[in-house]
Every structure is written in structure tokens, then in C-alpha cells.
Design a protein around this nucleic acid. Structure first.
Lengths: 192, 192
DNA sequence: CCCTAAAGCTAATGCGATTAGCTTATTGGC
DNA sequence: GCCAATAAGCTAATCGCATTAGCTTTAGGG
């Protein structure tokens, strides 16, 4: 029998590509059967590369959050102030639109036992957001509030958009711009 | 054999109470076995009241979104302007904290085939948010943007909080207040 | 009192995850 | 180039859960 030549990474990659095809529901309903089928392998063979379905999902989340960090960081580098925040917001929304299932997995796939690897990767993303706010010279005791406000607004918009919560998708781009402007303006006055 | 006296409503209610005990992951991992066990009935008996597990979940979402509408509407009634928005935000966050799994079910439990009943119930919630903004005298062509901004920010904060995305929960109340103030201030200038 | 519809049950099927134990390809050391 | 050890893959079997089929019994209206 010819070997498939799988690795943990390739299995995770196959799984991520599978859920991409299936909207936001993809992550929750991924099955080892589907992954094995796509990989051209019997189901139990996957256990040579992942410990369980849960382990696979966790690995998928880690991979996805790292991707998100990468595109976010790229957007923020070389910019500052409103420019940085705007670029960050568009990068995150762009990633979510391009890979709804991956964004969804990162944000809603967590269980009680999020492992350290995911926590670390997520903290990395957080640092990018923090970096984007550097130019505002926020007082230290308000920085955390500003970060949370920015994250909340961006994240909420993206989740509602992905989940179809906005109804007709008309003018979503405009609404997003309005939201970002509201934020960038507000960030200058957080300290009041 | 003594009858259990179940109805569709009581089955949904049992299921909702079950997931309440299980954090945000509860909705995704609910099983008919668990519901039947709690109801004191054999699993297939549930099919006399719900068509399938999917049907039960849909009914749970409808019930949850109606609850959310009710507490939101109650908070907004008799208030206006910043007062209304602040009350609405706290009501929604309060509901989410009290019933994480129900909020999670409403916002992330949707599939491609959301039925009309859920759509209608969700539209009702939307109307409450719209009502809370009445006092701002927003230009008609910006109202939709304002609604979306408000929803995004509230929703994002709550989701991040429930999902543990904020790390240590220190001072979350303060951060939420800052966010709301940022919003209420911003709402006055959306038209610029 | 009887008769029908609804509520429940048991038995059986199927699918997906997981485990155990076997077989064979690959590969590093000779 | 050959050989043992390791790793990758397979088949068979078990378990939990959803779902369907078909039977039994309760409850309530005539």
C-alpha cells in the first residue's frame, strides 16, 4: 500500500481547508471521517497524527489564530495612530471574510480547557492590537479599557456580519467605516 | 407506567436549564440523552415533542432570543438618549452573564437554515435597539450605521467576556462603562 | 363504559469516535 | 546492498448518540 505521507501539519491543513468550504458552521461539525476521506486514508490512521478530534480542533484553532496574528501584524507595521487602527480593523475583517470558519473557530471554538499553546498564540494577537494603539499616548490606567473597546467593536461587527446578524449586507463597508471613525475619534477622549 | 407529562415547551425548558449549567459550550454539546435523562423519559419519547435534535436546538434559540428581547425591552422602556442606551447595554450584558449558554446559542448557534420563527424573533430584538436610539435624532441615512455600531460594540464586548477573551476579569465593569461612554458620545457625532 | 389519539416504550439501524492489535513501508546503521 | 526498529497505515470491534419502526398504555370525550 502506498503511504499518504501525512503529518500533523498536513492533517490540520486539510481540516482547515475542509471547513473553509462550509461557512461558519464548519468548525463545529468537522468530522474525522471527512478529514480522513479528503486525506485518502482510513479514519483510525489519523490517530497517528492527532490524539483525538478535540486535539485536532485545538490545533486548528492555534493555526488559525496564528494566521490572524500574521495578517494583523502585517497591517499595523509601519503605520501609527488612526492609520494603524484603521488598517488593523480592515485586516481583521478581511481575514474573517476570507476565512469565516477559521475566524469563527478562533473566537467561538474554545472550551474550558484551552491549552497553553492557544493562550500564547492569542496573547500574541493581543500584542498587535496594543501596538496599534501606541500612537494615542493613552494614560496607562486607561490603556486596557481602550484595547478592550477597540477589540469589542471590531470583533462584534465581524461576528454579526459573519453570522448574518445584519440582515441585508447592503452598505456594510460604509457601516464599518463609520464604526472605525467612531472608535478612532473616541480613542482620543478615553481619558476624560 | 406513569406519564411524564411533557410538552414541547417543557422539553425546551429542560434543555435550556441543562445548558445553563455548562458554560458557553453547553449549547453545542447538548444531547437528547441528557434531556431525556433529566426529563425522566426514554430518548425516543422526546420525538413526540420535537422533530429532531436540530429542531430542539432551533426552538431553544427562539426561546432564548425572546427572553433577550424581553429583558432588553424592559430596560429601554421609559428611558431615552444616553440613559436608554446605557440601560440597554447593561441589560444585554446582564442577560449574557446570567445565561451564558443562552446568549451564546442565540448568537453563534445559527446554521444556514435559520427558520422564519427565529428571524422574526431576532428582528424584534433589533427593534428594541432601534428604539433605544430614538432620542438621538439621527439622520435617517445614518441610523442604520448607528444601530450597527451600537450592536457591534455591545455584542463584541459580551462575546469576548463570555469567551474568556479578556483574560483576567479585573475591572471589566469599568471597561464596559468606558465603552458605553465612548458609544454614547460617538452617537452624537455619527452624522459628521 | 368504550374508543381513539397521544405519550411512552423497546428493538434495531447507522454513523462517528476511539481502542487494540496486526502489517508493511521507510530509514539509519552496518 | 541488507536488516532491524520505528512509524504509518489498516481491519475489526466497542461505545455513545440520533433516528426510525412498530407496539402498549394512558387519558379523556362520546
Amino acid at each position: 500500500m502506498a503511504r499518504a505521507g501525512l503529518t500533523r501539519e498536513s492533517v490540520v491543513d486539510i481540516a482547515l481547508k475542509l471547513i473553509d468550504a462550509d461557512g461558519t458552521a464548519g468548525f463545529g461539525s468537522i468530522t474525522l471521517s471527512a478529514v480522513a476521506g479528503r486525506a485518502g486514508v482510513a479514519v483510525p490512521s489519523l490517530y497517528k497524527h492527532v490524539a483525538s478530534l478535540g486535539d485536532l480542533k485545538q490545533a486548528m484553532r492555534v493555526a488559525a489564530v496564528r494566521e490572524l496574528t500574521r495578517v494583523s501584524a502585517e497591517a499595523v507595521m509601519g503605520r501609527s495612530g488612526d492609520d494603524a487602527v484603521t488598517a488593523l480593523a480592515h485586516a481583521m475583517r478581511g481575514f474573517a471574510r476570507q476565512h469565516p470558519a477559521r475566524y469563527w473557530a478562533v473566537q467561538t471554538g474554545g472550551g474550558l480547557a484551552d491549552d497553553q499553546e492557544f493562550q500564547d498564540a492569542a496573547a500574541e494577537t493581543l500584542r498587535v492590537v496594543e501596538g496599534a494603539l501606541r500612537g494615542y499616548a493613552l494614560p496607562a490606567d486607561r490603556l486596557v479599557d481602550a484595547i478592550r473597546a477597540l477589540r469589542s467593536a471590531m470583533h462584534g461587527f465581524v461576528m454579526l456580519e459573519l453570522g448574518g446578524g445584519f440582515g441585508l449586507p447592503d452598505d456594510l463597508d460604509d457601516s464599518f467605516d463609520v464604526l472605525i471613525r467612531l472608535l478612532t475619534r473616541g480613542l482620543s477622549t478615553v481619558s476624560d
